[in-house]
Nucleic acid binder design. Structure first.
Lengths: 138, 138
DNA sequence: TCCAAATCTGTAATCATTACAAAATTATAA
DNA sequence: TTATAATTTTGTAATGATTACAGATTTGGA
């Protein structure tokens, strides 16, 4: 996992994003936490250490990151967008505890370049139901 | 395809939804059109024949239908929710022409009851990219 | 150090969705 | 058929995430 500030800086430069301190900290947060945060969650968390940040900057840079393919936009919840610092896996949403669980599924479909002739650039796989823990707990 | 009003009425009653005229017409619209409409699109279309309808009723009943499993909420666009009168297929979204294309994929994952121990109740599969037509047109 | 460009902040605007109370409709029973 | 209670629908206002925008700040290069 990439969490060292210098490494993150290079990670940003590799995709032609100017590595400002805010961007480095934002990406660091996304790579370290696995909590699929909303923009507001990130804002509130980073605000503790960077008191002057604005929600607008968080949103702007998340959009930039997503456009450059650094992070994934999750549309699990119609009410708010969530972000994921890691790509390449499916997601499970528990309707009981509301937890979002990463699923390391080996899916053949997503390995293909095309599907029914349509060029695949990205994909999302969501499952909804009751997670293992909630089933056990009743 | 079920589009006859009487059949739709029975379809609603089968899932214990009181078949009011608005609900019958709303479900008819969803079953006939394959346009993955937003709430507003449905509202504007139905308003032509049912001038007194309200957007609130559309939303309320779409939520009811979704809860009863009659329609599918599509999480394709962060800006607005779309609805699908047919379930059981994946979706492709063309980033060029913005078209939503149904993909009749035979996926083994979604036939399973559980995945990594988590109970599956519903699922969504999305692909993003350039559709066949837009590739040909340049 | 200085400067132009890019980024960030703070506030206000946007707009899909939801809340809520009153009006209308429905189903049922007398 | 008519009265009645429950449900549904309407219309308006509220909510809240996201976006627009202008001015302040920061950045990287000369």
């Amino acid at each position: 996992m990439i969490t060292d500030l210098e490494k993150i800086k290079k990670y940003l430069q590799a995709v032609k994003i100017k590595p400002t301190y805010l961007r480095i900290r934002l990406l660091k947060y996304l790579l370290e936490k696995k909590n699929h945060p909303t923009g507001k969650m990130i804002y509130q968390a980073l605000k503790k250490e960077l008191p002057t940040i604005s929600l607008t900057s968080i949103y702007n840079n998340l959009e930039l990151f997503a456009k450059k393919g650094l992070v994934k936009i999750l549309l699990l919840d119609p009410k708010e967008i969530r972000f994921d610092g890691e790509k390449g896996h499916h997601h499970f949403f528990c309707e009981k505890c509301q937890k979002i669980i990463d699923l390391p599924i080996d899916c053949n479909l997503i390995k293909k370049k095309k599907i029914f002739g349509h060029l695949i650039k990205d994909w999302d796989g969501y499952f909804f139901g009751i997670c293992k823990d909630c089933q056990r707990d009743g």
